[in-house]
Every structure is written in structure tokens, then in C-alpha cells.
């Protein structure tokens, strides 16, 4: 396969993932709305929002880094996504999967945040550094159980290639990591709560105290970029989790495979929505303490379990 086709496929894959991520966001808003006892916005509302923010006539910038913030963020999202094979066995949706891509993906998850931190800090608003410090601190902590869980997987499957991990889970539902290594899944799912930034780990973006946190100064196209990334990155995370823990999406028919992907990611996402609707948010130090306590212990336990039993 030549590189042009590869890039073309990647573009299609990115577009589909972004659209899916945004739609998922819209659906989740509707689900939250039902919990609230109302109907909620239309599912396509996120798309209009992006158009609207893009359509601003003026836009204020606070320096070069300010431009780079959203770009880094989007790069992070793209990077994360592009190295995850979305559909097992599909050419179009295999992206740039390669040996060791799991490491790369984990790096990119972090990368976006860091870039954002630099850009948002340039905004000069006191709330953005507060949000950033919280965000980074919280992120470091939820990365710990996640990393532990990934290490457990690496030990279990003896690889750092996502495709291989997915392949290892094929055949029967009992081959999923969920059943072969439940502790690792638990640790990872808890850290997913932090990653998705729903309650109780939404302090970084808490509108009630640090209005919207890091992106407070972001406007117009900057914000639109961030929103786009939100769709893409959100989809990427979910696909990653699906691949690592829930057997990935595999079917000879690409559409059925996509449907499987949709169902699985939706359910994974619903997990954090389920928790998010029921709880308020933690204070930053509480959430850090939380991640470093039980999930970390579970993560370590999973490694021990895989390594020695």
C-alpha cells in the first residue's frame, strides 16, 4: 500500500472518528438531560457549536504560544488517534498502527495536555494557570493506574502493539481482557473517569469556581479547534479502551464492525456518564488522593497477578 492511499485512509478515518466523537458528545448531553428531567439539545448541536465558534469575526490572541496551545492539543488528539487501529483487520481504519504504538499513544495522550498548558498559560488569566496546574496534577495521578494497567497488559500479552493485543482477544468473549485480567480493567476504567473529565473529576473545567479552567481565554477558532479535538480525542480514548480491554471491533463486514465499535465505545463512555451524573466533583487534592489510592493498588495487584500467576 502506498503512502498516499494510507494518508487518504487516515483522513477518512479521522473524519469519521471526529464526527462520531462529536455525535457521541451530543448523545451524552441528551442522556444527561434525561437524568435532569428534560429533553436536552439536539444531537447535532456540537457541530453547530463548532461552526459558530469558527464563524466569529474577530478573535483575540495573547501571543504565539497562545496560537500553539490549541494546535498542540489537536496534534495530541490526532497523534493519539492515528496510532490506534480502530477496526481490527480493516485497511481503512487501521491507521498507522505499528509495533510499540501503545507507548506512542500514551505519550500523545499526555502531549496534548502539555501543549495546551503552554498555550493557555499565555492567556494571562489567573484562572487558566490554576486550571492547568490542577489539570496536570490530576492527569499525572490518573495516568498512574492507567499506566500500571497497560503494563499489566504488556506483560500479559507480551507486546506493545495494539493490533496484537486486539488479535489476542479474538475468538470468544471470554478472551477479552475484561475476563482474562479484570483487575487491570478496573484500574483502567477508573482512570478513564479522570480522563473523560466528568464528575467527580471535573474540577479542572469546573464552571462554578474556575470558569471553564484552562480554555478560559480561548475564543473563536481557538475554541473551535479545541472542540474538534474533543470529538476526536474522545473517540480515540474510547477506541483505545475498547481495543485494550473489550476485544476491539472485528468483523469482515466493515459496517458491522463499525457498528460493533459504536456500541462498545458507547457503553464504555456510558460508564463514566453513569458515574458522572450521580456525583459532584472532588476537590483537586481529593481526586489526586483517590487515584493514588485504590486504583493504583488495583493496578499493581493486576501486574503482580499477571506476572506471577
Amino acid at each position: 500500500m502506498n503512502i498516499t492511499t494510507k494518508i487518504l485512509y487516515a483522513i477518512i478515518s479521522v473524519l469519521v472518528a471526529t464526527a462520531y466523537g462529536l455525535t457521541l458528545g451530543g448523545i451524552v448531553r441528551k442522556i444527561y438531560a434525561r437524568v435532569h428531567g428534560r429533553y436536552g439539545p439536539p444531537v447535532w448541536q456540537p457541530f453547530i457549536d463548532i461552526l459558530q465558534t469558527h464563524g466569529k469575526r474577530v478573535s483575540i490572541s495573547h501571543g504565539y504560544m497562545f496560537y500553539l496551545g490549541p494546535v498542540f492539543r489537536l496534534a495530541g488528539g490526532l497523534g493519539t488517534y492515528l496510532f490506534i487501529p480502530v477496526i481490527f483487520g480493516s485497511v481503512v481504519f487501521s491507521n498507522f498502527s505499528m509495533a510499540g504504538d501503545l507507548l506512542l499513544v500514551m505519550y500523545f495522550i499526555f502531549f496534548g495536555q502539555l501543549g495546551m498548558a503552554l498555550g493557555a498559560g499565555e492567556g494571562g488569566h489567573p484562572y487558566s494557570p490554576i486550571g492547568i496546574s490542577r489539570g496536570l496534577a490530576q492527569m499525572s495521578t490518573f495516568e498512574v493506574p492507567f499506566a500500571l494497567s497497560v503494563i499489566a497488559l504488556a506483560i500479559q500479552y507480551n507486546t506493545l502493539n495494539i493490533t496484537t493485543i486486539v488479535a489476542a482477544q479474538q475468538g470468544s468473549i471470554l478472551n477479552w481482557t475484561l475476563f482474562t485480567n479484570p483487575l487491570a480493567v478496573v484500574a483502567a476504567m477508573i482512570s478513564l473517569l479522570g480522563m473523560n473529565m466528568h464528575s467527580p473529576f471535573s474540577i479542572v473545567l469546573a464552571p462554578q469556581e474556575i470558569p471553564i479552567g484552562p480554555p478560559i481565554e480561548m475564543n473563536s477558532s481557538f475554541l473551535a479547534t479545541l472542540q474538534t479535538n474533543r470529538g476526536l480525542f474522545g473517540a480515540a480514548k474510547l477506541v483505545l479502551f475498547m481495543n485494550l480491554y473489550f476485544g476491539g471491533a472485528a468483523h469482515p463486514n466493515i459496517f458491522i464492525a463499525l457498528a460493533i465499535m459504536v456500541v462498545k465505545t458507547f457503553l464504555i463512555y456510558m460508564f463514566s456518564v453513569f458515574v458522572g451524573a450521580a456525583f459532584p466533583r472532588f476537590r483537586p487534592e481529593q481526586s489526586m488522593r483517590f487515584f493514588l489510592k485504590w486504583p493504583t493498588i488495583i493496578g499493581i495487584a493486576s501486574i503482580i497477578l499477571v506476572a506471577y500467576f
Binding site: 428534560r38 439539545p41 439536539p42 483575540i60 475564543n219
Partner: peptide, 12 residues
């Protein structure tokens, strides 16, 4: 929200 109206915490 169903009319596409949402609050936004920052003027930007």
C-alpha cells in the same frame, strides 16, 4: 438547551 442556547462562563 434544546433551542441551542447554552450558558458560557467566560465572555471570551
Amino acid at each position: 438547551f434544546r433551542y441551542g442556547i447554552a450558558p458560557r462562563p467566560t465572555p471570551r
